[in-house]
Design a protein around this nucleic acid. Structure first.
Lengths: 208, 208
DNA sequence: TAGATTGTTAATCGATTAACAATC
DNA sequence: TAGATTGTTAATCGATTAACAATC
C-alpha cells in the first residue's frame, strides 16, 4: 500500500504511538499490548492494531508488541530514522524561537539554512546560523539538498515564499503563517495554525 | 444543537471560513457563494453549506452569503467576538516568542500573565509582562478570571502544569509541549505538536 | 421571468469498532 | 495446556457528496 493511500488520521496516530513507545522505553518497559497503548492515548485497542497492521505484522499473539522493535519500525515507516535537513524562511520572533528550539535534533531534524528579506536582519546570526538573503534561497536549497522548509513569514508573504520553495525543489512545507497556502501536487504542506487552534478552544469552552 | 455535538472537523473549518472571509472583506468583496468559498479552501460547495447550516440559515438563495454578515456570525459562533484573556506557562524560547507574537491581538486574544518556575527567569520582563513564579498561578488565574492557558514547558513538566491549571479553573489549554496531556472532562485541550506535523511531512515526502 | 444558489434529504463513501479464528 | 493477544473480516457508525425543491 502506497503512503498516499494511508488515511491521514492513521499516519498522525503513528507519531503518537512512537512518542509513547519512546517514553515506555525510557521507563524500561519492553513489551506493550494494543489495549495498553490505546488506553494511554485515548484510542481503542482495535484501532491501534488496525493502524499498525497497515504496515506489516509487528506484534506477537499472546504477548503484544516489543517496544524497541516497534520503535525502530515506526521510525523507519515515518522516515525519521535518517536526518532531515530543513530551511527556515522568516526570522521574526517565531522563526528565531524555532531555530533555537532544541526539540528538533532529538527527532532527527536539523535547520541548516535561514532566510529573510529584511536587510537589517540579513547577515545577523541566529543560533549558529547566519541569516541569508531570500535571493540565495534557490541556490542554497539545491546545493544542500534540503527537502523540508518551515515558513514563518507574515501571511501576505507566505504564498510567494511557498512558490519559490517549491520551484527550488522543496518537497514538504511546515507553514506557521496564518493563511492557507496552496502547493502543487507532489509537494506536501502541513499547517501549524494558532488561530484555528485557539478558536477551537473558545468554540468549545464558551459552548456550555 | 450543543457545541459538543458539532463534529470537530466542522468547527475547524469554521475558522478557515472566517479567515478567508476576512481576506475577502479586505478585498472589498461583499458576497460569496458556497462554491467560491469551497474552491478557495479546497472543499466542496456542499460541505461549506452543510457546515454553516449547523448553526442557522445565513445564506440567500440565488445570491450567496453576505461577507460582512457571515463574518459577524462566525465570530459569534466561535466566541471570538469578545476578548479572551490567556495565561502562558513556560518562558523558554517558544514561550517568549508567543508572548511577543502580534497575531493574538488581531484575533481578540491577549496574554495577561506569564509564569515560570526558574528563579533566574522569575521577575524578568517579557514584552510588557513580569514573569511570575509558578506558585502565583492559582491566585492570578482566579483573580483575573483567565479561562485559557498556553503550556510551553518541557514535556516532563506539562502534565503537572496542566493539573494545576485545571485546579485553578482554566477551561481550555493550548499545549505546545511534545507530550499528550490528559484533562478532566469539561476542560478542553488542543495540541500544537511539531513532532507530529514534521513526521507527517517526512512520512508523505519519503513515500514516493 | 430565467438563472443562480441556498438548505436539506438521501446516497455514498470511508473510518472505527466488534468479533473471532489463529497464534504464542 | 490455559490464558492472552494478535491480525483481519464483517458490522457499525459518522462524515462527505450528490441531488433537488424552495427561494431570491
Amino acid at each position: 500500500m502506497r503512503h498516499a493511500d494511508i488515511p491521514k488520521a492513521v499516519s498522525q496516530r503513528l507519531s503518537l504511538y512512537l512518542r509513547h513507545l519512546e517514553s515506555l522505553q525510557r521507563s524500561e518497559v519492553s513489551t506493550v499490548s494494543s489495549s495498553q497503548l490505546g488506553r494511554s492515548l485515548g484510542l481503542t485497542a482495535a484501532q491501534v492494531r488496525k493502524d499498525l497492521a497497515y504496515f506489516g505484522q509487528f506484534g506477537f499473539p499472546g504477548v503484544g508488541y516489543k517496544v524497541q522493535h516497534l520503535i525502530a519500525q515506526l521510525r523507519r515507516i515515518l522516515g525519521t530514522d535518517k536526518t532531515w535537513l530543513m530551511a527556515l524562511v522568516g526570522v521574526g520572533n517565531l522563526g528565531r524561537a524555532l531555530v533555537r528550539y532544541r526539540g528538533f535534533e532529538k527527532q532527527n531534524f536539523e535547520i541548516v539554512a535561514v532566510f529573510d528579506n529584511d536587510p537589517r536582519v540579513v547577515g545577523t546570526t541566529v543560533g549558529t546560523l547566519a541569516v541569508q538573503p531570500l535571493d540565495d534561497l534557490e541556490e542554497s536549497v539545491r546545493k544542500r539538498k534540503i527537502r523540508i522548509a518551515i515558513i514563518a513569514v507574515p501571511a501576505e508573504a507566505a504564498q510567494g515564499v511557498a512558490d519559490r520553495l517549491v520551484a527550488a525543489g522543496i518537497r514538504g512545507i511546515l507553514n506557521f503563517a496564518p493563511t492557507t497556502i496552496v502547493v502543487p501536487d507532489p509537494v506536501k504542506c502541513c499547517a501549524v495554525d494558532l488561530a484555528v487552534q485557539l478558536e477551537q478552544l473558545t468554540f468549545q469552552v464558551q459552548g456550555r
